[in-house]
């Protein structure tokens, strides 16, 4: 059932595509993190309108299937005067917007876990809201939510399998192309699954380690 020479021939191609998948996922995590902090802060804002705004963002980007979001962005960008957006950029925008919604919920939890007294103390010392956010809230929230953020990375790597719809030759698309030419569906797709496990299983292990050490420190 397995064709070893073919496997050896295909593996380097997939390895190259893995790099594309990783690039897109990491970029989306970084931009999603920025969006997440902004939206997460909005959700906790004292101003009701801003809270609503944050809530609406999360509602929309968590409620729509990622595949549909990616398609929408791909066809929508040319309409608003950006006709030559590369598939990579479209994919990163799509993934980041969605990741932002999930990370916002994670960060909101992290922000809420910080005792209010700390912020009062910072306020009394004359720190501005922005300073408080960047110097006090974000560093602590990140430490508290690190396991959840690693899990978000796993979700992003899996979600990036859908970017082929905007024409990006990621891991999944490359395997699809290989399978379409050599008809070794089981072998090619099992190898594809193996590549995802190669990244995600260690990440999942790291997340559980982080979670345990976090529990020990806070206990």
């Amino acid at each position: 059932m397995f064709d070893w020479p073919l496997l050896q021939q295909n593996a380097p191609l997939l390895l190259g595509a893995l790099w594309v998948t990783l690039q897109v996922s990491i970029a989306a995590l970084v931009f999603g993190f920025v969006i997440g902090i902004v939206v997460g802060s909005l959700r906790l804002s004292p101003i009701p309108l801003l809270r609503r705004l944050g809530g609406a963002y999360i509602f929309v980007f968590r409620g729509i299937p990622l595949l549909v979001q990616l398609l929408f962005i791909y066809y929508f960008l040319p309409r608003v005067g950006l006709p030559n957006v590369s598939p990579t950029v479209a994919a990163i925008i799509g993934l980041s917007l969605a990741a932002g919604a999930y990370i916002a919920e994670i960060m909101r939890g992290g922000f809420l876990a910080i005792p209010g007294g700390q912020l009062e103390a910072a306020g009394l010392l004359g720190m501005s809201d922005a300073q408080m956010l960047m110097r006090i809230r974000v560093p602590q929230a990140v430490r508290l939510t690190l396991p959840a953020l690693v899990n978000e990375m796993i979700l992003l790597i899996k979600a990036s399998s859908l970017v082929s719809v905007v024409g990006l030759a990621d891991l999944t698309r490359t395997a699809q192309n290989l399978a379409a030419s050599d008809y070794m569906f089981v072998q090619d797709y099992l190898m594809l699954a193996g590549f995802y496990c190669l990244i995600n299983v260690p990440l999942a292990y790291a997340a559980s380690l982080l979670e345990r050490s976090l529990k020990e420190r806070t206990a």
Partner: peptide, 10 residues
């Protein structure tokens, strides 16, 4: 650890 799409293909 694997995307739904990949499982679907399998």
């Amino acid at each position: 650890s694997t995307p739904f799409l990949v499982q679907l293909f399998l």
